[in-house]
Amino acid sequence: MPAGPVVPDEITARDLNGAARNELKTLSKDNAEQVARHLAMAALHIDDDPALAHEHALAASRSAGRIAVVRETVAITAYAVGDFALALRELRTFRRISGRDDQIALMVDSERGVGRPDRALEVGRAVDRAALPTDVRVELAIAMSGARLDLGQPDRALQELDIPELDPDTAYPWSPGLFAARAAVLEELGDIDEAAKWQRRADVAEAAIGAVDADTETIEVDEIDEVEIDDEADGESEAGFDDEAGAVDEHVDDQDAAASVSADDSDADEAPASDREDGAEDRA
């Protein structure tokens, strides 16, 4: 078995989110510790060095290929390095093991990545959106909109984004991406002015959410060119494996307080080297 990437001594299993650690309890103590450290490294480097994050995910999979969070992490890191075929295989395995649709948007985008936008739409339509967590539902809408653009259907791409969460006056954790997606579609449609308004809303929402902990504070934005923050608010969102996705992702509770944004329209988107016995299932 090839040696995995080095994990610094200061990285321990405690650096992995508790929900993810719970999934490793079926492993021996020493194996669980090492797998957790590799997963923690994947979470740590997914943004700044996705290739290294992917190496750590693959190292974890070689020791714990039957654990859902491990396969999910391989999928996410594979997507990050552009290996969409591997991402799809791992996402299907994660879904089969866990029974969850947390990564349905990533499945849709991975189908797009391998050049199958029609199949991407089929995958997205096959789930009950009402049963999805709000952030997952928004991510799915964005992915479905992208698939419509791939098919040269900008009008229908815009329709995919017409969801209740598209509130131009309130910024939730998912708002910047949703607003920016709408701006991109409007630009594709040739409505440059409206696209600029939605992109501006995306920028304001991102600034407001990045300035404070969205779990505890409501932010009033009185001017579109600046974000006013309550002096008592001073926090940052956590990055890591969240409770529901158990994967490398930004964690912000989408059910708590949101930032209120006032924007004038004139100012205003090779399979892993893990357990080979799972490979046959992946090809199903």
Rank of each mutant, 00 (worst) to 15 (best):
P2H: 07
A3I: 02
P5S: 12
V6H: 12
V7G: 08
E10K: 06
A13K: 13
A13W: 03
D15M: 07
R21P: 06
E23I: 01
K25E: 09
T26C: 01
N31K: 14
E33F: 02
A36M: 02
A36K: 02
A40Q: 10
A42F: 06
A42L: 06
H45Y: 15
I46S: 06
D48H: 07
A51I: 09
A53P: 13
E55Q: 15
H56A: 04
L58S: 10
R66E: 11
V69A: 14
V69S: 14
T73C: 13
A75M: 01
I76R: 02
A78Q: 03
A85L: 07
A85K: 13
A87S: 15
A87Y: 01
R89T: 04
T93W: 01
T93I: 07
R95W: 02
R100E: 11
Q103S: 12
L106H: 04
D109L: 12
V114S: 07
V114W: 10
G115T: 00
G115P: 01
G115H: 00
R116V: 00
D118C: 02
L121V: 04
E122L: 14
V123H: 05
R125T: 06
V127T: 11
R129W: 07
R129Y: 00
L132I: 08
T134P: 03
D135N: 10
V138A: 03
L140M: 09
A141P: 11
M144G: 02
P154A: 08
D155T: 14
P164M: 11
P168S: 07
P168Q: 06
D169E: 13
W174V: 11
W174S: 14
P176W: 02
P176Y: 06
R182K: 15
A184W: 03
A184E: 13
L186W: 00
L186M: 03
E188P: 00
I192G: 02
R200I: 04
R200M: 11
E206I: 00
A208P: 09
G210C: 04
A211N: 05
V212L: 09
V212N: 08
D213A: 08
A214Q: 11
A214L: 11
T216C: 05
E217V: 12
E220R: 14
V221Q: 12
D222M: 04
E223C: 03
E223Q: 13
I224A: 15
I224V: 15
D225R: 12
E226V: 12
V227C: 12
I229E: 10
D231C: 01
D231L: 08
E236P: 00
E236T: 13
A239R: 13
G240P: 05
F241Y: 12
D242F: 01
A245K: 00
A247N: 15
D249N: 09
H251P: 00
D254K: 02
D256F: 06
A258N: 02
A259K: 02
A263G: 03
A263E: 08
D264V: 11
D265C: 00
S266W: 06
D267G: 07
D269R: 06
A271V: 10
S274R: 12
D275W: 14
G279P: 00
A284D: 12
